[in-house]
Nucleic acid binder design. Sequence first.
DNA 1: GTCTATATCTAGATAGAC
DNA 2: GTCTATCTAGATATAGAC
Lengths: 196, 196
Amino acid sequence: MTSQKIQQVALSLFAEKGYDATALSEIANKIGIKKPSIYAHYPGKMELFLEIVKNVQNDYRACWFDALKTSANQPADKRLEAIFFTVSTHYINNKDNLSFLVRLWLFPPAECAKNALDSMHSLNEELLEEIAIIFRQGITDKIFHPESPEEMAHAYFCLLDGYLARVIRYPNFDYKKAVSLVWKSFVLNPLQNHDM
Amino acid sequence: MTSQKIQQVALSLFAEKGYDATALSEIANKIGIKKPSIYAHYPGKMELFLEIVKNVQNDYRACWFDALKTSANQPADKRLEAIFFTVSTHYINNKDNLSFLVRLWLFPPAECAKNALDSMHSLNEELLEEIAIIFRQGITDKIFHPESPEEMAHAYFCLLDGYLARVIRYPNFDYKKAVSLVWKSFVLNPLQNHDM
DNA sequence: GTCTATATCTAGATAGAC
DNA sequence: GTCTATCTAGATATAGAC
């Protein structure tokens, strides 16, 4: 279907160059149609963009809740590690989605900045709370030292977000190797495992 | 001087809305002049942008080398902590510079992407190497376990970059408090300090 | 649904008076 | 160095034939 092809090409260009620097004519050229044909599928550029936003956010949420569900029966520390690996691997294999999402989160188009930030914010708060729950459980189970679970969750996201941002700008890095070391550098198990 | 005022307002707008979404007329309006007057100070929009790039990069480099120099007589673990605090504090107090720099690094304007990425890349490689040197020294001094210093440096930047990205999107967060916990979550001293 | 042709708008940039 | 007036290019979007 042409609508899907438009979305796919638009996602890639929006991810690479951003909303403002991407012309509808460029999208049309890449798929071999003329610019006005796009308007048979989407009312306008912003509507096309927001449709992609919706899909990329749904993919993000799906990836997270899959990781949360799949790891549900593991202890807190192993669970956090599994989620880190699952989410980062997902985005190493979907770099367009990764760039689009990070760009949307940090620097949304000025034209829809307020709404985009609201939706990303609530999505992030939701996941932050899920991670805080795991830290809280880990503290109850005496796997972690008793610190603020919310702040530990923030620290967790600092590392994950920093890692994903690096994936964007160091595309030739050996991620499979790096992810282990990055993860090992994060204190997860100070009560039991003092030798790493 | 008017040139300085233009740069200052342009930096703030480029940081907030990005290069493409910022109009010269908007810059002019904010400082109470008309658009063509800008051309008496800069040959064009891109030249103005690149001038700001140069200054923001110089500020970044200066901040880093100041942190490196000031901490030079401390042991490796304390040194890395001091640098983390110095650099993050600098950018918490200069949010325009922070947004501009992160935007430039992750999503430079399509028009100058190749050159901008080249200069940011070499700047980052330079700092990555400085941090790797500190890790290497720490391994020699038996402060750290013997891992790849380069990869440890990458992990260090993952945490720092993730923290700084979070500063952009959670401006009301208590950073002074958070930076300690974020830092404590990073394994620095496994050979000596097993109790954090 | 796709096309050609065109309307409309806005932005960067220039000319030239003061 | 600043202004008014203008040029030009390129973008979104629309009209209407096929």
